[in-house]
Computed example of a mutant assay.
Amino acid sequence: MKQKVLIEVSMNDKKSRSKALKTAVGLSGVETAALKGQAKDQIEVTGEGIDAVQLTRMLRKRIGFSKLVSVGPVEQKKEEKKPEPPPPYLWPYGGPAYHPIYQSEAPNCSIM
């Protein structure tokens, strides 16, 4: 089951932000990581089987103060399936050689 984890981290400059993102992406199970919040001081991590406590501890060791804000499932958008159009028919080598409509065995045909 995919989950979304939101962690607040005290990040002051670009270097600490990039270090925090690298730390978050390095954890197993993480698919995406993004900065959130007005001051870009929160990291939103999505993935499958993420250990949120371990991620928070890693961020505390490498960056500084970090607080686990929320953990929850990822909300998936429902998409309507559109039927696929049938594939176009490709005539082999320029077209069929036998036309059953035009070849008739009946003697009453005035053209033949």
Results as ranks from 00 to 15, higher is better:
Lys4Glu: 15
Val5Cys: 04
Val5Arg: 00
Val5His: 05
Leu6Arg: 07
Leu6Thr: 10
Leu6His: 04
Leu6Tyr: 03
Leu6Gln: 04
Ile7Trp: 08
Ile7Gly: 14
Glu8Ala: 09
Glu8Gly: 04
Glu8Asn: 01
Ser10Phe: 02
Met11Trp: 08
Asn12Met: 09
Asp13Ser: 07
Asp13Gln: 05
Lys14Glu: 15
Lys14Met: 14
Lys15Asn: 11
Ser16Lys: 00
Ala20Gln: 06
Leu21Asp: 12
Lys22Trp: 10
Thr23Val: 14
Thr23Lys: 07
Thr23Asn: 08
Val25His: 06
Gly26Trp: 09
Leu27Trp: 03
Ser28Phe: 10
Gly29Tyr: 11
Gly29Gln: 06
Val30Ile: 05
Val30Ser: 04
Val30Arg: 01
Glu31Phe: 01
Glu31Asp: 06
Glu31Ala: 06
Thr32Pro: 00
Thr32Leu: 04
Ala33Arg: 01
Ala34Gln: 08
Ala34Asp: 09
Ala34Trp: 02
Ala34Pro: 00
Leu35Phe: 01
Lys36Arg: 14
Lys36Val: 13
Gly37Lys: 04
Gly37Asp: 07
Gly37His: 02
Gln38Leu: 15
Asp41Thr: 07
Asp41Tyr: 02
Thr46Ser: 00
Thr46Arg: 00
Gly47Leu: 05
Glu48Thr: 04
Glu48Gly: 01
Gly49Ala: 15
Gly49Gln: 10
Ile50Gly: 04
Asp51Met: 08
Asp51Pro: 00
Ala52Leu: 08
Gln54Ile: 14
Gln54Thr: 14
Thr56Tyr: 01
Arg57Gln: 08
Leu59Thr: 03
Arg60Trp: 04
Arg60Gly: 05
Lys61Ala: 13
Arg62Glu: 13
Arg62Lys: 09
Gly64Pro: 03
Gly64His: 08
Phe65Pro: 00
Ser66Val: 07
Ser66Lys: 02
Ser66Met: 07
Lys67Phe: 09
Lys67Pro: 00
Leu68Asn: 01
Ser70Glu: 11
Val71Arg: 03
Val71Ser: 06
Val71Gly: 02
Val74Gly: 01
Val74Glu: 03
Gln76Cys: 01
Lys77Tyr: 05
Lys77Pro: 02
Lys77Phe: 05
Lys81Leu: 13
Lys81Tyr: 10
Lys82Pro: 00
Lys82Tyr: 08
Lys82Val: 12
Lys82Asp: 11
Lys82Ser: 09
Pro83Cys: 10
Glu84Lys: 02
Glu84Arg: 03
Pro85Leu: 15
Pro86Asp: 13
Pro87Gln: 12
Pro87Tyr: 11
Pro88Ile: 15
Pro88His: 08
Tyr89Thr: 12
Pro92Trp: 15
Gly95Phe: 05
Gly95Ile: 06
Pro96Ile: 14
Ala97Thr: 09
Tyr98Asp: 03
His99Asp: 15
His99Ile: 12
Pro100Asn: 13
Ile101Glu: 15
Ile101Arg: 12
Ile101Ala: 15
Ile101Phe: 14
Tyr102Asn: 11
Tyr102Thr: 13
Glu105His: 05
Ala106Ile: 11
Pro107Cys: 12
Pro107His: 11
Pro107Gly: 12
Asn108Gln: 15
Cys109Gly: 11
Cys109Asn: 13
Ile111Lys: 09
Met112Gln: 05
